[in-house]
Amino acid sequence: MTSTILPLSEPYGAVSCHRAGEGSPLVLIHGVGMQSAAWGPQIEAFAQTHEVIALDMPGHGGSAPLPEGTELPDYVAWLHAVLQALDLGPVSLAGHSMGALIAGGYAVSHPENAARVALLNGVFRRSSDARAAVEARAAEIRAGSFDLETPLARWFGQNETDQAARAQVGEWLSAVNLAGYAAAYTAFARGDSTYADGFAGIPCPLLALTGDGDPNSTPAMAQAMADAAPQGRAVVIEGHRHMVNLTAPAAVNAALQGWLDTEGAPS
């Protein structure tokens, strides 16, 4: 796996990514507080057949942050600049959590560049109570409150596999740039409906996947995303929560393989 820095023009700055394998491009975008390494099981599996490009989101890993006050469309514009710089042509695009919001927004905004899109543990049209709760957490983060244990308790169960993944995710969260984390979490809190009306116009195969124990990226949301897209399909992994790509990699990779095997968007 090769680490690469893309020197984009302002306002984006440096973008860090990890590339592995050869073949048709598969681009991966992680969630808030994570980094490209959070896709480890997927990079290992799909680099056997694809060129896998795992991006560090702005303000995470080695990527420069976006300016203060950015919203979800700014992250979508950032992704477009990255993909234009990489000059890959249409890509298979997968995002987790905040990355799913970016990927879904990109498929709406730039359908010609998305051969297919996978949204793992994404959010879609939160209830008013859920939106208020996540916006309150975003305000606390912007004020400098960094609560490590609450998200980890929400994301992981008590079995051995979950606890091993929890330890690694805890290390990534502890190392995150707080300003980048706050900016991304604010966009995440406000972005669940930004592109929702556009899902009906996504022409490519869409996979919406989550764990049945994820209280915020719920199975109902996954089904709603799949139902909204012409070629949508929902997959729910039983017995898992928010970091399902780490706690159930075999099941997630099987679902992603089926998605990759579907015919892409028409040219």
Rank of each mutant, 00 (worst) to 15 (best):
V52T: 11
P58R: 06
H30D: 06
E22G: 01
I43V: 09
F46R: 07
Q42M: 02
G13L: 02
S36K: 05
L26V: 03
E44T: 09
I29T: 07
H18A: 07
G23C: 02
G59D: 14
Q48F: 02
E22W: 04
S36P: 01
Q42S: 06
I53P: 06
R19L: 08
Q48S: 12
P7M: 07
G23R: 11
I5D: 13
P25M: 06
W39V: 01
G61N: 10
A14M: 03
G33K: 13
E44Y: 01
G33L: 07
P58N: 11
H30N: 11
E10S: 00
F46D: 07
G33D: 15
I53M: 05
V15W: 04
G33Y: 14
A20N: 13
G59C: 08
A54R: 05
L55I: 13
T4D: 12
M57H: 09
V27M: 01
A37M: 13
H30S: 10
G33E: 15
A37P: 01
F46A: 05
E44P: 00
Q35K: 12
L55Q: 08
Q42W: 06
D56I: 02
E51R: 06
S16G: 09
H30E: 09
G23W: 12
L28V: 03
E51N: 03
A37H: 11
H60R: 03
H50K: 05
A20L: 04
S9K: 08
T49V: 10
P11M: 12
L28F: 03
T49R: 13
P41D: 14
Y12M: 02
L55W: 07
H60E: 15
G21S: 09
H60Y: 13
T4G: 04
G62I: 04
L8R: 04
H60K: 04
L28G: 01
S24F: 05
I53N: 08
A45Q: 14
G13A: 07
Y12D: 10
D56K: 00
E10R: 00
G21T: 07
Q35S: 09
Q48D: 15
P11Q: 12
P7Y: 10
V52N: 09
H18S: 11
A38P: 02
E22L: 00
T4Y: 07
I53Y: 11
H60C: 04
M57P: 03
L28E: 04
E44G: 02
G21K: 05
P11S: 07
G21H: 11
V15L: 00
P11R: 00
A47E: 15
T4N: 10
R19I: 10
I5W: 14
S9N: 12
Y12S: 01
G61W: 13
L55M: 08
M34E: 12
P25T: 12
A14V: 08
E10P: 00
V27R: 03
V15F: 02
L6E: 10
E51F: 03
I53T: 12
H18R: 09
S9W: 06
V15D: 04
D56T: 02
E22H: 07
P7S: 08
G33S: 13
F46E: 11
